[in-house]
Design a protein around this nucleic acid. Sequence first.
DNA 1: TCCCACTGTTAGTGAGCGTTAACGTATGTC
DNA 2: GACATACGTTAACGCTCACTAACAGTGGGA
Lengths: 209, 209
Amino acid sequence: MATRTDAPTRREQILKEAARLFAERGFHGVGVDEIGAAVGISGPGLYRHFAGKDAMLAELLVGISEQLLRGGERRTAEAAGSPGAALDSLIEGHIDFALDDRPLITLHDRELDRLRDSDRKLVRSSQRRYVELWVSAVRGVYPGLAEAEARASVHAVFGLLNSTPHLGRPGALPGREAMAGLLRRLAHGALEAASKGDAGDSSGSGRSQ
Amino acid sequence: MATRTDAPTRREQILKEAARLFAERGFHGVGVDEIGAAVGISGPGLYRHFAGKDAMLAELLVGISEQLLRGGERRTAEAAGSPGAALDSLIEGHIDFALDDRPLITLHDRELDRLRDSDRKLVRSSQRRYVELWVSAVRGVYPGLAEAEARASVHAVFGLLNSTPHLGRPGALPGREAMAGLLRRLAHGALEAASKGDAGDSSGSGRSQ
DNA sequence: TCCCACTGTTAGTGAGCGTTAACGTATGTC
DNA sequence: GACATACGTTAACGCTCACTAACAGTGGGA
């Protein structure tokens, strides 16, 4: 992860602002003029850098999903042999992503179907492989968990970790480090609980009721 | 809960199909002609039943948020005096909602900003009160949890429970009752874990790392 | 100096789409 | 029978908006 010091190129500026705007008001809710205005040029000037509005979305979504997958692969490779460490690292990486790239998270599961078939297939493929990474890690730690339940649990934990964009003002919530710690506890607790009481007992899972 | 036996009115048919289409392709991604076709009439015939496309979305979102809030209020009232029972019942109700009304869930946090100011205020108000219901219940069961963390945890659990729409085909996942049980365990486990290790320890929360 | 690639501008075009207008028909009521 | 109401239809309007055309300034390399 080479930390870059050079100034962002125009393409990158555009992608960043487009991501923010798309996340705020949806793909169809944002006009090219607004995206242009956000980077100081106006409207059709964007077409010097991208083939069209669709191309920006495609590049964003493909980029996110591939980056997420590569990060996951790297982390599981580093933790090879220790399922616990792999799962911890996956959770850690996903928390970083959720806290640092809120707009991208939102886009990721909101505007996927706007893509051309080929791009959507690309994104879906990366997503699927990322999920499988998680499912393997989870089942490595909790071998008792059936595959379907592990997969559903992984999706649920994604929903849990990706919940930060829904917290309105970033004031009334814990600071970044506290938030990361809380999400870590929530995710571990959820998975731990999923692995218990797995024997078809679908009535009172917890305390009372 | 009066189970209705009479046929759904045309308005209700339209709302149901509109909800499904909006959830699938987004508010702007669906044309009025498609909505009309989905109920067997064509395009502008919808205007005999609704003032416009916006009005359909507004009625949907206001309806969902108010229904959710009323259900929560009823459940906490029924469980008055027992914080544990209240939280259990809230979780149960939200799971039912998530499993039975997937399209509405999706709409609920995706298309809110398309609404007129007055309607959006209505929805936001219901949402806020619903969250506060949960925060009170959570803090009743786990008094050690600070308010900001309880609120963040509640949002996270919403994300967890609302994750079912993201599961592609409804075939590769557990059946309805198994899924409900799994979500119950996940939610309880997450909140339980949030309440522990609350003393600013933001490093190793769980097992290894 | 000439050239050309790069990056931007404004004006215009064409398609999509929400909405309205004008009109037709069945049903129940006086 | 006359009439109002409810519920549809098709045709057309007008606005928004992505995209293109035509044009212009800037800067580096031969």
